[in-house]
């Protein structure tokens, strides 16, 4: 049974964006700091709208912020 995973580079992008804090990113996207923390910790998958807002804040395409892999693909990569 394949397991879907949504990964993100938010922590890295925040660092390269003048070390933006989670709170600053939360204010810019209209969510709480805890939600940003949950997204970074992969405890919550954001809605499409929020994902686009985050990408817009960083000024990068959505694919550079979020990636989606299945366990099958991960296994293939290891092989």
């Amino acid at each position: 049974m394949e397991k879907r995973r949504v990964h993100n580079n938010i922590r890295k992008l925040r660092f390269f964006q003048n070390e933006m804090t989670q709170e600053e990113l939360a204010e810019k996207t209209g969510v709480t700091r805890q939600t940003i923390n949950a997204i970074e910790s992969a405890k919550y998958s954001p809605s499409l709208e929020l994902a686009f807002k985050i990408a817009l804040v960083f000024g990068v395409p959505l694919e550079e912020v979020f990636s989606y892999t299945t366990e099958d693909k991960a296994t293939e990569t290891v092989k």
Partner: peptide, 9 residues
């Protein structure tokens, strides 16, 4: 402290 109820909440 802002009382925001966002999508996760």
């Amino acid at each position: 402290e802002p009382m925001v109820e966002d999508e996760r909440d």
